[in-house]
Amino acid sequence: MRYVKWTFLAVIAIAIFLFFNYTLPDRDVVRIVETEVRRVDFGENSVFWAQPDVGAGASGGSRDVRFINAVAENGAIRVYRNEDTGWGWPPYFKLDSSNLQTEAADLVSTSANPQWVVITHYGWRAEIFSAFPNAVAVRAVDTPDVRLIPYFNIGLIVVLLGVVFWLWRVWDRFRQARIEPIVDNITIAIDNADERADNFRERLLSRFRKKK
């Protein structure tokens, strides 16, 4: 039974970790190779795609999506999409994807003369689903060796942990004030019933023992 409980808690912990790993922003240092617009038909991977441009009409099953193709310093390929998240989820309120696309196109460079940029993004690159991270911002840097400390992520997680801890305290106080007395009463009642049953059994058996 213990395995069930711990497995359940582990699954929940993993789910929470995956949620934050997908939704929180991350930064890569890359060299932009090109920017393009591709037609995408959404199938079973539609959960990995965001909105059509803010204010535009509904997109149905397919849409033109802007892409930013980039290469990391170690040669790894990084492909980002560049979609509005609008007023929906995740709450980046990204309304300026066309502007971002222009900024990215302005920073295109070759491997002979690289221009390194820091791309802030969220989401996963999952080739198996054709899922792409969504680029949120792009910023030029001089060298690829920049120290990127995720202040926002750290602050957000600390605040969330504080909220969770406060809620746990509230629940614990409520439990001690209201629920524990009831549970204690039930335990006492069960103990009393046990004692009475034991006494009854003793009296019964002693009668039989005397007769022998």
Partner: peptide
């Protein structure tokens, strides 16, 4: 906070 996000992401 929401307005700050809109500003920093877009402008």
């Amino acid at each position: 906070f929401l307005a700050a996000i809109v500003y920093f992401v877009n402008f």
